[in-house]
């Protein structure tokens, strides 16, 4: 029990970048567009946010800059994949390659720099509750923001007209077009939102989670976030579930190692991946479960 509260807190922090990016990608994909450029957008945002945070000394400015950078970078994808109907998968991958290179080049002068931001937080009163305080109420505000964002996106997709339109565009762009919606404008918007969220995730890594910039520091989290959207069957709350599941298994395998368990660490390191596969297989057994949620036009180009 004594170790459970810090484990929960660590899980919530570790899952946050995956959740932020995953939520954005859900909206992105609900509109029928797959953007495999998540990793590249996160890297661009990580370096841009770090640079602004470093220059201004303001974490908030850094976070906003990261989101904006991710959004702007996603416009390259939109211009090609939506504007010029290039293949979405290939365009996304090219974007990742491009982003990795560009961020490394832009970030050279920030290697070895640090940002002296506040690192500890607590919510007054709540933080003093035994167990719950340490587990839930001493986290960075971005952790709560990610959950808030999840709630807002879940509500937006399910209950609002905007959500309905986004889903319609992802299901049947032809019909949406026929009744007068601009499919491309809506898709560009959804991709931009995805880019902004991936941007937040990237800058969360470089300014908050491990406040530093080094080349390639996103280290595959963009890909995990992409995988989580399918894991979640494109439902926001299930993205949160997936992100925290992944985070918790990661933390648990480290905790087992710290306890000196005699299983080869390479095998333990496989646990988060295998756990994700197993849970996915279990929840996917009911075919309706997946099919009902998968945007019918996912990945298919649309040209009016």
């Amino acid at each position: 029990m004594e170790q459970l509260a810090p484990l929960i807190a660590a899980t919530l922090s570790a899952g946050t970048p995956l959740l932020l990016a995953g939520i954005g990608l859900v909206v992105n994909e609900r509109s029928g567009v797959v953007n495999l450029g998540a990793e590249g957008m996160m890297l661009i945002a990580a370096v841009a946010g770090f640079a602004v945070g470093f220059a201004t000394g303001s974490p908030a400015a850094g976070l906003i800059a990261g989101a904006v950078a991710g959004m702007l970078f996603s416009l390259i994808f939109s211009a090609l994949a939506i504007g010029l109907v290039t293949n979405q998968y290939a365009t996304g991958l090219a974007l990742t390659l491009f982003g990795a290179g560009l961020s490394a080049f832009a970030g050279l002068s920030y290697v070895g720099k640090s940002v002296p931001f506040k690192t500890t937080f607590e919510i007054p009163l709540l933080a003093d509750i035994p167990f719950f305080g340490a587990a839930f109420f001493k986290l960075h505000p971005m952790v709560y923001f990610a959950l808030l964002l999840t709630a807002v996106v879940a509500w937006m997709l399910a209950r609002t007209r905007l959500g309905l339109v986004i889903r319609a565009v992802g299901e049947s762009p032809e019909s949406a077009h026929a009744i007068g919606y601009s499919v491309r404008a809506i898709r560009v918007g959804a991709v931009a939102f995805g880019g902004a969220c991936c941007g937040l995730a990237g800058v969360y890594l470089s300014l908050i989670y491990t406040p530093l910039w080094v080349e390639g520091m996103v280290a595959g989290r963009g890909w995990i976030a992409l995988a989580l959207t399918t894991f979640a069957t494109w439902r926001p709350w299930r993205v949160a579930l997936g992100a925290y599941l992944f985070g918790s298994v990661t933390m648990i395998q480290f905790a087992l190692q710290a306890e000196g368990i005699e299983i080869a660490s390479q095998l333990l390191s496989m646990m988060p991946y295998i756990a994700t596969i197993v849970v996915l297989a279990l929840i996917s057994r009911n075919p309706a479960f997946i099919r009902l949620n998968m945007p019918a036009s996912l990945g298919k180009p649309f040209h009016p």
Binding site: Q3, P6, L7, A10, A14, P17, L205, Y209, T210, L212, V214, G216, M217, A219, R221, T250, M251, F254, A255, Q257, A258, E259, G260, S265, Q266, S269
Partner: peptide, 24 residues
């Protein structure tokens, strides 16, 4: 106590490993 991250370089994982050690 030792925790292996099986990577030379992944700041996020390094941080998570450090957290697990401190919790332990």
């Amino acid at each position: 106590k030792v925790v292996w991250v099986n990577k030379w370089f992944d700041p996020g994982k390094e941080s998570e490993a450090a957290t697990a050690l401190i919790n332990g």
